[in-house]
Nucleic acid binder design. Sequence first.
DNA 1: AACACGGTTCCACATCATGGAACCCCTGGG
DNA 2: CCCAGGGGTTCCATGATGTGGAACCGTGTT
Lengths: 267, 267
Amino acid sequence: MSETATGTRALDRAADLVATVVHADEPMSFADLQDASGLAKSTTSRLLTALERSGLLERDPSGSYVAGRLFWLYAARHDPWEELVRLARPVMDALGADTGETVHLSVARGERVVQVAQVDSTFLLGTRDWTDVEVPAHCSALGKVLLAWGALELPEGDLERPTPSTLPDADAVRRDCEQARRRGWALTQDELEIGLTGIAVPVFGVRDDVVASLGISGPTPRLAQRADELGRRLLDRSAALSSLLRGPARPTTVGGTARTENEEVVA
Amino acid sequence: MSETATGTRALDRAADLVATVVHADEPMSFADLQDASGLAKSTTSRLLTALERSGLLERDPSGSYVAGRLFWLYAARHDPWEELVRLARPVMDALGADTGETVHLSVARGERVVQVAQVDSTFLLGTRDWTDVEVPAHCSALGKVLLAWGALELPEGDLERPTPSTLPDADAVRRDCEQARRRGWALTQDELEIGLTGIAVPVFGVRDDVVASLGISGPTPRLAQRADELGRRLLDRSAALSSLLRGPARPTTVGGTARTENEEVVA
DNA sequence: AACACGGTTCCACATCATGGAACCCCTGGG
DNA sequence: CCCAGGGGTTCCATGATGTGGAACCGTGTT
């Protein structure tokens, strides 16, 4: 915290208050803010009133502080997916650096799974840009995650089978999803394209719903052996993003180490 | 601007900078901000650096300032429609006060038109709460606006006809929409329910697309006579909301008085 | 009535923000 | 190559401005 900052104490403190409120994403009382920031009562009061005046904060009917008009305005003008991508960028970059493989982020838009961001492989042989390429959900790890966590429904009728390894029918897909849920990550090996392996994990939103899936893909020889390690690494990274999106520490419902931290993702 | 504010000059100025950037919704250069705010170069620099550090602002690759992490985070967590409602509230309240009639705001969600906010009539006889009531688009003024401005497609097949006054077929609806576009507002008289009249206008978003329709409804005897006056009043109010959403003054493409103002809607 | 709670106002003090000028870095032009 | 200029940061003396303790206010509680 003791950065070499000078000549901006009031502003820094005020910005801290705003950040606290926005991160929490739930009404914060005067007292909450006061001791979250450790400021004197009078100072807190002065700053908060100024922030309210300027539209950065706002008081709800009960008198607690929430994000103000400026935030509404910004949010009303911008697609949440677009913003998700911006937030995910650091995480994806980190994964790219970690693994060297191509990193994907996709969401369910209606019935379809669409890629919304990608970080390219550093290897010569790697998955090429497939943003906006339509791929059946049950053939890609990204899609399986969305299926497994209920962000997407399996379509009626027969499933497309791009390769012999593609899961043959709805039941097989359901079992595979089952396993993915237990394990925390989904896998596709040669199921979309021979030699292509993908691993993906869910990204959770505000109400513990799955808003996106985050994954990597590359040549089977490079990924298949260490699928387990890569899966765990993805889980770690996506947890950071999820907890950022979810806001104030909520106990994780999944049976496991209930995490409580809520650190800033960006370095 | 000369409110009785004390002990918060730095903060006020900084908040002004943020507000400028957010309102503009396009990258603002240092120089832009400097003379938009009339601050000394050094002061501007200090404030901007502090704002950047705190995540309220951010520099794009070209060095211009845009809304920062905190805004992304907020936007990623919140539905733009929810925020639209918050922004529209003052406008709707004003319309309620103006006319005394029930005021509606609706958007196209997929194929359907859904009410997202309502201000109730002050009269005893008025439209009741119909938030979440499904109504065919071609029977309500709100729906017609969405059809007319292309936010919604007419469904295939025969149209429902709740009353004898309901427009009989797709062609009639198209002609009616045509007229609505010319006039700027849409009208339904007894077409959804005998004795019920509605008037609605479009709300434009960032890229001149229609994001919602804003309208009023009430008993035909009270509204039918002064439809024209009410239509114009709606247009006025919705223009304020649209220009807020659209951001920096864009010349209106519609042949008419090109408006340039971009005032705050809220009183 | 007394008290605790949540918040605002007051005020003397000195810390912190201020803005002019100097400075730095890059780019383009002569 | 050097100079001019735009864009931005750093320095620093100055005093305006933000600070926090204490007093105050309003409201609900015992």
